[in-house]
């Protein structure tokens, strides 16, 4: 199995480490040719406005949108979640999103860096809680009927899926615990 990791900007190297620990090969994705032959894609945390800008300038936006429509399994964390959301609040007017999961997210909805935090979250299919790190995280403000919430913190969804599209508002790549990556890979 070959898993692409969007490498325009952000914490892509940390995702590659976590995926390698799960025993899969990874490839950095920067231009559309990099999408050829990948079985799944991880979209990392970072700055969503930067990534949105680079998705356009690199010519990656449309081919990626098409692959996702055709059923590519995708896991977006933090900025990656923003890029996959149907609706983005407090974004830039020219910010583009792939509208692959029917949720509304507010950028930096938990506040600035001084409000960034870590917390344990409970996931039904995992025996022990997962330790989640939230960095200037987006906040989910609406979920569509087809979206399944897998975990919540303070009654706000933080990990969800719609079909083969998974999103988390926190950073599973920042903790040495590959369970969420494994969980995603099981669905690929």
């Amino acid at each position: 199995m070959l898993v692409g990791v969007l490498a325009l900007q952000g914490a892509f190297a940390a995702h590659q480490r976590a995926l390698a620990e799960c025993g899969v090969l990874t490839r950095q994705v920067r231009v559309s040719a990099d999408l050829d032959g990948i079985d799944a894609l991880v979209m990392p945390g970072g700055e969503s406005t930067t990534m949105s800008h680079l998705l356009t300038t690199s010519g990656l936006f449309d081919p990626l949108a098409e692959r996702i429509r055709d059923g590519l399994a995708v896991f977006g964390t933090c900025a990656g979640m923003i890029l996959l959301a149907r609706e983005v609040l407090d974004g830039r007017p020219d910010q583009r999103s792939l509208a692959a999961i029917d949720i509304t997210v507010r950028r930096n909805g938990y506040g600035r860096q001084v409000d960034s935090f870590e917390a344990d979250i409970t996931i039904d299919s995992l025996a022990a809680p997962f330790h989640a790190v939230f960095i200037r995280a987006p906040k989910v403000e609406r979920i569509g009927p087809a979206v399944q919430v897998i975990a919540a913190h303070d009654d706000v969804p933080v990990f969800a899926r719609e079909g083969r599209v998974f999103v988390a508002s926190f950073h599973p790549e920042l903790t040495p615990d590959p369970r969420l990556h494994s969980l995603f890979l099981q669905e690929v």
Partner: peptide
């Protein structure tokens, strides 16, 4: 849904540096 949280920890501070990579 749990609600406990810790701010200003080393992983949280280092995490933002990780997010700025490649930029």
């Amino acid at each position: 849904s749990s609600s406990a949280r810790a701010t200003g920890t080393y992983p949280v501070k280092r995490g933002l540096a990780e997010m700025l990579k490649g930029g």
